[in-house]
Design a protein around this nucleic acid. Structure first.
Lengths: 142, 142
DNA sequence: GTTCCTGCAAAAGCTTTGCAGAAGA
DNA sequence: TCTTCTGCAAAGCTTTTGCAGGAAC
């Protein structure tokens, strides 16, 4: 699940994506805040440090990175896109109470979908929803 | 995968959800058009037959039905909500080319998520994306 | 010097909200 | 009758677009 910033930069160069200051900062944010943030959260996290940063650029950057395969988009709920820098196989659990998203390991290749013979599958997502242990505890206390 | 309209009506009664004309029509649409429609598609499909129908009512109805567990919401992509009247276990495949959503059978209980001990899991979704056989064919012809 | 990127403002798209009148139980 | 639902208009959010100036290469 660990993601190396330098490796990502190399990949950007390979794909002829320019290393603008803003892009590097967004990438850096994603590697340092592994919380599946929304575009808005990334913007808010960075615009103190990069005052000229605009939301448009955050969106542009995320779209470029997603197209290049460096980030994965998560559409789990609420009509908002979340971004994940780790592209390895894993599932996502969203707590309905605190809205936090947790990763979990899962062997995606073990999922058998016999109905999909002839389909070209490029992307597999597993989304679970429920209540995380912390929220179960604090709910009981009430 | 087949869904019985009468059964759904009985469930509405059990849950004290009023059987308004609009609600019944939305439910009927969902059982007769098993295409994972968006709220907009449902509205467009019905407003000839039910001219006074408003989009607000479509949204209100779908939210009530989802809350009551009679429909499932699908957030697979593009920040739009799709609705599925079949609540049995199955995965969804979205073709990136024609944007159609296909169901596929999958044994959701066979998915092992050992990291989620202590998590209360209420909902499991499996989303695959790629190119469906029809689109593969028509792409080759070009 | 080119080409691509940034960021402002405006627009677009989906969904929700407030509320008065209408319909269901 | 009482409660809930409908539907209009308006607002709320997230995301995209157009475009002129600026930065990367």
């Amino acid at each position: 699940m660990k993601v190396d910033f330098e490796e990502l930069v190399t990949e950007l160069k390979n794909k002829n994506i320019r290393l603008s200051h803003q892009r590097l900062k967004v990438l850096e944010y994603l590697t340092q805040n592994y919380t599946h943030p929304t575009a808005d959260q990334i913007y808010n996290g960075l615009h103190h440090e990069v005052p000229t940063l605009s939301k448009t650029t955050v969106y542009n950057t995320l779209n470029s990175l997603a197209e290049a395969g460096l980030v994965r988009t998560i559409n789990i709920e609420d009509n908002e896109i979340r971004y994940d820098i780790s592209t390895g196989d894993h599932g996502h659990f969203k707590c309905k109470s605190c809205r936090k998203i947790y990763d979990f390991e899962v062997d995606i290749n073990s999922i058998k979908a016999t109905d999909l013979n002839g389909f070209e599958i490029n992307d597999k997502n597993i989304y679970f929803k429920g209540i995380c242990p912390q929220c179960q505890m604090s709910n009981k206390e009430k």
